[in-house]
Design a protein around this nucleic acid. Sequence first.
DNA 1: GATTACAATGAAAGCGCTTCCATTTCTTCG
DNA 2: CGAAGAAATGGAAGCGCTTTCATTGTAATC
Lengths: 341, 341
Amino acid sequence: MTGRDKNKYNTTTGPVTLADIAKLANVSPVTVSRAINTPTLVKPRTLEAIERVIAKTGYVPNLLAGGLASRKTRLIAAIVPSVASTIFAETIEGLNAELVSAGYQLLLGLSGYDLDRELELTRAILARRPDGIILTGITHMKETRAMLTGAGLPIVEIWDSTPSPLDTAVGFSHAAVGALVAQHLLIRGYDRYAQVGANDPRAVQRRDGFVNRLKGIAEVELPDLEMNSPSTFQDGREAMAQLLDRGEGSLGVFCSSDVVAHGALAEAHARGCKMPEDLAIIGFGDFDFAPYTHPPLTTVRIDRRDIGTKAARSILRKIDGTERVEAMINIDFHIVARGTA
Amino acid sequence: MTGRDKNKYNTTTGPVTLADIAKLANVSPVTVSRAINTPTLVKPRTLEAIERVIAKTGYVPNLLAGGLASRKTRLIAAIVPSVASTIFAETIEGLNAELVSAGYQLLLGLSGYDLDRELELTRAILARRPDGIILTGITHMKETRAMLTGAGLPIVEIWDSTPSPLDTAVGFSHAAVGALVAQHLLIRGYDRYAQVGANDPRAVQRRDGFVNRLKGIAEVELPDLEMNSPSTFQDGREAMAQLLDRGEGSLGVFCSSDVVAHGALAEAHARGCKMPEDLAIIGFGDFDFAPYTHPPLTTVRIDRRDIGTKAARSILRKIDGTERVEAMINIDFHIVARGTA
DNA sequence: GATTACAATGAAAGCGCTTCCATTTCTTCG
DNA sequence: CGAAGAAATGGAAGCGCTTTCATTGTAATC
């Protein structure tokens, strides 16, 4: 007895229910439900009376019950690797803004770049029966894919491109980004080329695109360093130190994110490298600080927020179901040339 | 008919249910429920059989139904102003990590520093019957407070301190931060003192603390600039330009965030100000880039992640209900003296 | 003024699970 | 070996809503 009494939170007697409102307003529960969900079907006088009762009692509908009955939760789940790295935070903001204005709620899952965790999250999320789900990347465990397709809900994969998405994808080709950066450096011409980056699937694709574009022209050097996503300022600094110690000649470096690039930049700056003549650094992401490094960072810009917005719109259109949604929605990217390349 | 058929997502016939599993495993639904939630109450042989069926069918329990029946959703909601500003992103990460490891899910709401939106979010969130809710700050509309206390669930307010929280608060005194910064600048001694900051309640408190500490010693100058939260690099830059144009003598400036400070710094740097002799700048937040500005930024450090962790733990302990949770949990802060003050 | 059409409301069933209480099955021990 | 207690299982009710279908009220039509 006392054991339970210690808990001061009222979990046993839920507050006002729809039935209570019905009784107080002298109508049936169905009418109250309609007053809330489809007010146009209710006579103005009745509606007003019901609304008065709702306001007076402070009634808050139970969406669990509603969702169970209607099989619609107005919940959209999104799984991203992290929210602390600026890169996904803005996507989330865009996503959320769009969803909220359509009357949906965002359920957030953070996978930490870990596919096993993504699987667990997917299971936990599906148990809440969201009306749609958004995943980061196109690399998933096969159990995840199976669970997802079996659930029969709209799926949007973001931040990558693929000819064969699970359902729809909103993103861009990371290989193409790598190639573009290589191209940009090639035009300027360097003695050596290097890539510094983390090991998540998208960073790896960017590296591959970079390496492929340079194939037959130059060998791409990679620092001997274990870099896990999300890569850090310190990673960049150490990598750059290695590269600089390792050889001679002018050097063009592609970093897997602006954070890493910033670290690389700091090391180069400390050693008095001349940029972009002796050393070029290109980052990825165009983070807030990029215009303000010394020298200002050249980087690849993607409209991160737009990915979120478009993903939300796709999901909503899929839920609506009246118009077809393309399998692949492409997002633009381009190089912002500043002081480092 | 066709109108509905266009929608390819299976929303009508939910997949496997607990009853299906029960039938396939030759047990009653109750036993399946126990196998999932309290497996120790089920005989190992039976358990194994049930688990086999679950694996084979890919059954995913419906937490809406479960939550409705048990009045426990294993859902914790958090409302923060934004997730794009680093400041709250890490709190979210800490929160999420702690919640996930306790088997809870995070439901995220973004208020955009808007109390009306906070109210709407609260309503929408409460409709999902979370087991607890976390809010940012201690300033809420009275309707929000009423709804919250009426809901009878554990509440944690974060990122601020107060003697009278709604339930429990995890944070620190922003006024004390302001006073500490003033103190730090006073010791070094400047001719003029200024504050540059946004208008959200916490930034205002920091300013007030700063102003009060300097009362009778110096007048605190404020740039004539409308700055809405979240304040930007550009805001800081303009504010600093104003301050520098406006008067003579050495100047000590307290900025409401590192982002603003960074902008102020850039302007000062461009004008060749000598720091920290002629100009001191102190930021707030100790963002990632703070050690790498030129000169490195002096700022106030708060363990942002820790706020999330502690908030999560408080909520969980409240839900558990066996141990009392303090009304106010204080978070440390201190000045990290680098190159700008 | 009777007929038809539509607007407004209600009754009953059920969404998929958990809870409470009852029943059955297995141990243990005098 | 039978009683008593514990372990394992099941039946029934119900969480708070929405859905479908039926009914009543009201207005439009000739």
